[in-house]
């Protein structure tokens, strides 16, 4: 049972590779930002699987904090894209 969870964890970590590919090779700037956004959501899944695997419940806290900070970061990037001024 634990080995199967290990396999799932490795798959989930390996899924970060497409995001990194999109961040590095994205033809335009918004493509890279899509990669960053999806990367932030994937980490929550990693935190959830590690929680079940190790049995330490506090790792979920890291996941929730990561969701919130990734949301603020993506909003900042979107704001940078949509206009040059803060008021626009």
């Amino acid at each position: 049972m634990t080995s199967f969870l290990d396999i799932l964890l490795y798959i989930q970590i390996a899924l970060c590779a497409p995001c990194l590919y999109r961040i590095i090779r994205g033809p335009t700037i918004p493509d890279r930002m899509v990669g960053i956004d999806i990367f932030g959501i994937l980490v929550v899944g990693i935190c959830g699987i590690i929680t079940v695997q190790t049995g330490k419940a506090f790792i979920l806290d890291i996941g929730i904090a990561w969701v919130i900070l990734s949301f603020i970061g993506t909003l900042t990037l979107a704001k940078y894209l949509s206009g040059k001024k803060l008021n626009e």
């Binding site: 918004p30 956004d37 919130i68 949301f71 894209l81």
Partner: peptide, 22 residues
């Protein structure tokens, strides 16, 4: 929290990308 943040971030990103000229 994940649902609200993910959908709103996607909306803001797609609007920003359109205004950026993608």
């Amino acid at each position: 929290i994940l649902f609200f943040t993910a959908t709103v971030a996607a909306h803001a990103l797609v609007r920003g990308a359109y205004h950026f000229g993608t």
